[in-house]
Design a protein around this nucleic acid. Structure first.
Lengths: 225, 225
DNA sequence: TTGTGGACTTAACAATTACATAATGTTAAA
DNA sequence: TTTAACATTATGTAATTGTTAAGTCCACAA
């Protein structure tokens, strides 16, 4: 199964470090973006919705830890991977780092090789525990908590609505035939009319507020950003 | 193109169900094996490396979901198809099912007919999913997403238009007679006039923006770059 | 029990779209 | 030039989907 390039945001106030890391991660096939201080990091994170954020701890305006704490209060970033860059023997900061919800930390001076292997490891780990939370664009679907978050706002879906959305979003872009939808969401022994699907689709569109479900006339529906 | 018999493993603690399903799938030409609980399912899966595993959710020792989760951690079973059998209104289980990586689920009580059609559909889908995306020159036709991309731009085709284009593009260069087109796209029981094809061809040409369908006067049409 | 509210389904109608065909224009071979 | 074959355009209709409101069912509380 092919996945599209992971997006990484790096925040550090030293241009040299930004460049070295960018270059190396870029070479690995990641899509890399940068920020030069805490405020810019927050801003760009909201724009880009990256899969991983690498934060230097010592940065102007806001430290990495502050940035992390702010991000973690928002549902879209709940799942986002965060790695801290810390000075070698700043013991206290890496403890604080884990407390605020970091996924890993790397000590300076940075070896590109090590950083890359840590980043790869992190993504591999996530892929394994995957299947839990779907994250497509700025939509987060959590089947455990039964919640859908769109642009920071939580939409409250009823059960059938949620299951339908979850099905479509589980394979973005793929068209689901009406039959498939019926058998997957309603089961084979339940018979409901065709309008029922439409009505649920409408409610989902209405509640999410954005247009992410496309009708393919005569065929079915698909989830698309 | 002939393929060898697909291997199916069925795990359920009710012997009657095992027998009914085995009998019916066997009749369809599948190679069928059985297991009567979760542990046996795991064991036999490793021995047999089946193409499809049908798991009852409620089983002694290990539930179907547990079996699935264990299998999915192993690379050999990453691609194996898995279908769950669930009680009709066990709400939570089918979402959990998809989470752990099921490909489909069927509700009990089981109708052999329905199960067979789902199994067949799954194998067909798999066959489709890899390699059915047509790429000719700078045109990409994806029958799963129902999209046509020409030079990075997506063209939106209606159902008949899409089916017609897909037919022609499936064998680039080959001329399709009008009769062939009619029977493949419209079916044998529907009768439409000859002009109908022309009109659809025109719309496709218009929507794609490029000239990729060649008229062979007195014969038919062909797809060409 | 009765009442209330939400989830789900359905019916009825509106809106949209796909489709087939008719009518007419264009092309190319004879 | 004639003519058969195809292209083009316009249009009515049938099929499909969108929308709204109302009804049913069920859970839960008073």
């Amino acid at each position: 199964m092919e996945t599209k390039a992971k997006r990484i945001l790096i925040a550090d106030d030293e241009p040299d470090i930004l460049e070295i890391i960018s270059y190396n991660l870029g070479k690995e096939g990641y899509e890399v973006y940068t920020a030069k201080d805490g405020n810019e990091a927050l801003e760009r994170a909201k724009q880009l919705n990256p899969d991983l954020i690498i934060l230097d701890i010592m940065m102007p305006y806001k430290t990495g830890i502050e940035v992390c704490r702010i991000l973690r209060t928002q549902p879209i970033f709940e799942q986002t991977l965060i790695i801290f860059l810390t000075a070698l023997n700043d013991e206290s900061s890496h403890i604080k780092g884990f407390e605020t919800g970091a996924d890993d930390y790397v000590t300076k001076p940075i070896s590109p090789k090590i950083l890359i292997s840590r980043v790869n490891a992190l993504f591999r780990r996530i892929q394994k525990e995957d299947g839990k939370i779907l994250k497509i664009g700025n939509i987060v679907i959590d089947p455990i908590k039964y919640t859908v978050v769109v642009n920071e706002n939580e939409a409250i879906l009823a059960k059938k609505e949620f299951e339908l959305l979850f099905l479509l979003a589980s394979k973005p872009g793929r068209v689901f035939l009406r039959n498939e939808i019926l058998s997957q969401v309603w089961g084979t022994s339940v018979i409901v009319g065709d309008r029922t699907i439409d009505v649920h689709i409408r409610k989902i569109r209405q509640k999410l507020g954005i247009d992410c479900i496309t009708t393919v006339k005569g065929v079915g529906y698909k989830f698309d950003i």
